[in-house]
Design a protein around this nucleic acid. Sequence first.
DNA 1: GTCTTTGCAAAACGTTTGCATGTGA
DNA 2: TCACATGCAAACGTTTTGCAAAGAC
Lengths: 164, 164
Amino acid sequence: MTRDTATRRPFAGTSTGNHGLTRPEVEAVLQQFGYRATGPRSTVIDAVIAHRRPFTAEQLVAEVSGSRTGPSIGRATVYRTLEILAAVDVLTRIIQPDGHPAYVCDSLGHRHHLVCSGCGTAVAFTKCPVDDLVRVLTKDTEFAIHDHLLEVFGVCPSCQAGAS
Amino acid sequence: MTRDTATRRPFAGTSTGNHGLTRPEVEAVLQQFGYRATGPRSTVIDAVIAHRRPFTAEQLVAEVSGSRTGPSIGRATVYRTLEILAAVDVLTRIIQPDGHPAYVCDSLGHRHHLVCSGCGTAVAFTKCPVDDLVRVLTKDTEFAIHDHLLEVFGVCPSCQAGAS
DNA sequence: GTCTTTGCAAAACGTTTGCATGTGA
DNA sequence: TCACATGCAAACGTTTTGCAAAGAC
């Protein structure tokens, strides 16, 4: 994603804490990055920040297009908006255990997620053990390492209790 | 994947080194797990072990169905065979940076991959820094952690040289 | 006024499934 | 013999694209 207007600086420490991200805040971020504030985007943002757990693009489509709160929003718009929100780091795109992508709305800075296989609850954590590994791999392989993907899957306490 | 015949014991240390896996070896593994040795499977296995880099299911389909070496093999067969090979640990299914799944043919035991964003070359490594993290997360969150996904992406030396 | 964004519908994409036929043990 | 495996084609769910109309700045 490359655009030539505006700040283009990632979200950084400018915002409030982990969750409790508000729509105006997100819209401000979008504007910083040169994206326009539109009605459909607001609706998508509202839906996004209402989620405390990972959600798929199709879930959001269902939520905002069956919407009682206004005109129905096109599938394409939802996909495009999610892509933008991920690009500006309001969302993180993760891969679920089943291989399907999902989005989580608590990513400020470098985070990973511990995802419950039962109910989908995601716990974000910042402790990233990959840095040391990257150093070793860089030295051993001479790759220029630029990214990594780390997700941890388990069963959360309440799902453990629920399952006999 | 659950079957009730035969050994059902993962590949373990029974085989030759990392790469250089041969078709008879792979077929032996399949038979250990109760799968039959068939012509189409042999063709798929040949194609699989010829790869030293991650490949997608569709790539393999193209290779074996445009085959000059015999009858064309159905898409479904390729997908089913890859799934089986992954289940018996001859292949590892990884997620590429673009989110698409791919398979790598060097996985014996617990491995991760350093994948080149330029050419797709994959280097396997066994050093897994996640164990400590799992201990910490288990204690902090009380999740029953059962799995994780770790992949590292970079640019390999020859792609670094190639790109001006 | 201009350029972005939208909604719709259609297409593309990768993958899975149903089923009649073929084949290995 | 008979369960397993195959090929085909159709179905599937997700994501992307083309385009004319609407909207933000």
